[in-house]
Measured scan of single mutants.
Amino acid sequence: MSIQHFRVALIPFFAAFCLPVFAHPETLVKVKDAEDQLGARVGYIELDLNSGKILESFRPEERFPMMSTFKVLLCGAVLSRVDAGQEQLGRRIHYSQNDLVEYSPVTEKHLTDGMTVRELCSAAITMSDNTAANLLLTTIGGPKELTAFLHNMGDHVTRLDRWEPELNEAIPNDERDTTMPAAMATTLRKLLTGELLTLASRQQLIDWMEADKVAGPLLRSALPAGWFIADKSGAGERGSRGIIAALGPDGKPSRIVVIYTTGSQATMDERNRQIAEIGASLIKHW
């Protein structure tokens, strides 16, 4: 067993022997301040990774656009098919120029040779490549099948209805392509620590998230040296922004954090800054 596999296998073990965790309302004060600064709703939840206990939450059962955070769930569904012998990570998928959609920095470079399922998941999570996500959605049967996968996990809230990039439209009061912070946090925890996926697939999923290259201005910008984070960000229309993450000190994750916002007129930089400040408060009061 590799060191990384050992780390993920012992996530519940280490967490069980940690000192009790206590909620700190100071972080919620910052979440509410972010709402004021952005002029928009902000949803927040913080779960203990081992027990699933909610440590703090704000608007945990209000719907927010998922945006690209759905790509972690998508690759979880792909990995479940791999575990069941219905898919192979090494299978190569070929596609054409007509398949390319807006923001496809990886797939646009491989029109000639195609990409493997493993490479597509890596591109979808680490670079948020939209064509990679659409190609992977095709392998599982489309958005409705991802929703069905989530329902089978016990998540009857999260739903995907459309493809990239239309799913980022974020129309107010439109339930399409949305989740709730509580539902997303619980589902992410199941994917990373539950028995739904094999140990190898859980490790692969967290490795992809740990290698995320496009979430630097968010929670990662607030992390002290030595902290662990595996995350996936999302951005959408109407001032929408979000991030889902597993993080913790001492090089291992111990909490799940989900943050979503929508309806702001603020710039992307300002949305990023507010999420980073929430992260800084979380870490300060850990």
Rank of each mutant, 00 (worst) to 15 (best):
V257G: 02
R91I: 05
A170K: 05
V31H: 00
T198F: 07
G90V: 11
E166H: 15
L55S: 06
R176A: 08
V42T: 06
A280Y: 13
R92D: 06
E237F: 12
V42W: 08
D269A: 13
R162D: 07
K232V: 01
I45V: 15
G234E: 04
D83W: 01
K144M: 11
P165W: 03
S96W: 09
L79W: 03
D161M: 05
I125Q: 00
G242M: 02
Q86P: 07
K213E: 08
A133E: 03
R162N: 09
V117N: 04
I125M: 10
L167F: 04
R241Y: 01
I140V: 14
G76Y: 05
G251T: 10
L120S: 04
E166R: 11
L137R: 01
D48W: 01
T138E: 14
T198N: 12
L199S: 14
G234T: 00
V29R: 15
I283L: 09
D99P: 05
E35I: 00
L136E: 01
R255D: 02
V157I: 14
L199R: 13
G52Y: 06
N272A: 06
L137N: 04
D33L: 11
L137E: 01
A225Y: 13
R202L: 06
G194C: 10
A280K: 15
G85N: 11
A182K: 15
C121F: 00
V82N: 07
E164Q: 02
E62S: 08
V106F: 08
G236F: 02
D33Q: 15
F70E: 01
A124V: 08
D174C: 06
L38E: 06
V157F: 11
P165C: 07
V257T: 07
G154T: 05
G226K: 10
A280I: 13
T107W: 01
A276C: 10
E145W: 10
R189T: 10
L150Y: 08
A34W: 08
P65L: 03
D113Q: 12
S240L: 01
L47R: 04
P105E: 06
E119K: 06
Q88L: 14
V117A: 04
K30P: 03
M209Q: 02
G114C: 05
M209G: 02
M153G: 08
N272Q: 05
S264V: 06
T112F: 13
P217C: 08
E166C: 13
E166K: 12
E164L: 00
T139D: 11
E195K: 11
V78E: 02
